[in-house]
Design a protein around this nucleic acid. Structure first.
Length: 189
DNA sequence: TGCACGATGAAC
DNA sequence: TTCATCGTGCAC
């Protein structure tokens, strides 16, 4: 199964595009983390786009720091950070190097070797075994990557404001959160 | 060196 | 609605 998933791994050019487009198309994709030789597999059902330094809700809006460095790097890499001192959030870096945009994976549907709740970004990381040691990790690697499903899946996409960014003024009201309509694993339908 | 504050989750 | 909990970023 793991070789099949690796064959369907998304190429660099998938990530090197408009961040909203990437966020929307990430829905339905398989997020895979191999832990102790066991592939944990989940279907992405909710994601948020963070457009770049001009986006007041994005971490890159406060400039390049040791923490946010991966956001400023090439697309197709992980950006993982700690929020509220206890939860990790997994992001996918998008667009050309230097653009500093990313997509936050907010919820996934468990498919294989996952235990527990996955409705929310902190819970996604807990279930998949992701923490900030994975920040900067290449998503074209063999142990942490995103793959296409074996067959096309049809679903409707809902668009909403992002969660937890009220401090960002008008940017908080932008419709940059996408999820699979009707999916029971979405964190906030 | 100190301090205010989260791209959250769980309990009440 | 409240609170846990600590790395980060920026003010002294």
């Amino acid at each position: 199964m793991i070789e099949e998933l690796r064959r369907r791994r998304l190429p660099r050019r998938f990530y090197d595009r408009d961040t909203r487009q990437v966020a929307r198309e990430l829905l339905g994709m398989r997020l895979v983390h191999v832990v102790d030789g066991v592939p944990r597999v989940a279907r992405i059902v909710e994601a948020e786009a963070y457009l770049g330094p001009h986006d007041r809700a994005a971490h890159s809006a406060r400039g390049l720091t040791a923490r946010t460095r991966p956001m400023f790097g090439p697309p197709g890499h992980a950006y993982v950070y700690l929020v509220y001192g206890l939860h990790h959030c997994f992001n996918v870096v998008t667009e050309r190097e230097g653009h500093a945009a990313a997509v936050l994976v907010r919820a996934v549907e468990p498919l294989a070797n996952l235990a527990g709740n996955t409705r929310g970004p902190g819970l996604v990381c807990r279930a998949l075994g992701i923490d900030r040691r994975q920040s900067g990790h290449d998503l074209l690697s063999d142990d942490l990557f995103i793959a296409r499903p074996a067959r096309r899946e049809r679903f409707a996409v809902a668009t909403r404001p992002r969660v937890g960014v009220d401090y960002a003024g008008a940017w908080a009201r932008r419709l940059l959160r996408f999820y699979v309509r009707g999916n029971r694993w979405v964190s906030r339908p």
